[in-house]
Simulated assay, not measured.
Amino acid sequence: MLSWALFFLVVALIAAVLGFGGIAGTAVSIAKLIFFVAIALFLISAIAHAFRGRRV
């Protein structure tokens, strides 16, 4: 999922360099959304793992 965020970030940077402001802004928004969703899923997974504990 973080690879998608990185992809959209690269697309945004290329679009910004070429002067496509609207496309760059949209790509940055998508990259930020995907990044924060990935962070939220990571935190949920870490908390679930902590509550589950270690099984023997």
Rank of each mutant, 00 (worst) to 15 (best):
M1L: 03
L2Q: 13
L2M: 14
W4T: 15
W4Q: 11
A5C: 01
L6H: 06
L6K: 14
V11W: 08
A12F: 02
L13P: 03
A15S: 03
A16Q: 04
A16E: 08
A16Y: 04
V17F: 12
L18A: 09
G19P: 00
F20P: 08
F20N: 12
G22S: 06
G22T: 11
G22N: 11
I23K: 01
A24M: 03
A24N: 00
A24P: 03
G25T: 04
T26Q: 13
A27L: 01
A27N: 00
V28Q: 07
S29H: 11
I30N: 04
I30Y: 00
K32P: 10
L33N: 13
I34E: 14
I34S: 02
I34L: 08
I34K: 08
F36L: 08
F36V: 04
F36H: 05
A38Y: 10
I39H: 06
I39A: 08
I39Q: 11
A40P: 05
A40Y: 08
L41Q: 12
F42D: 13
L43V: 10
I44M: 02
I44G: 10
S45T: 07
S45Q: 06
A46D: 06
A46Y: 09
A46T: 04
A46H: 01
I47E: 03
I47Q: 09
I47C: 00
A48K: 13
A48Q: 08
H49I: 11
H49D: 15
H49K: 14
H49W: 11
F51L: 07
F51N: 07
F51E: 04
R52Y: 10
R52F: 02
R54K: 03
R54I: 13
R55I: 03
R55V: 04
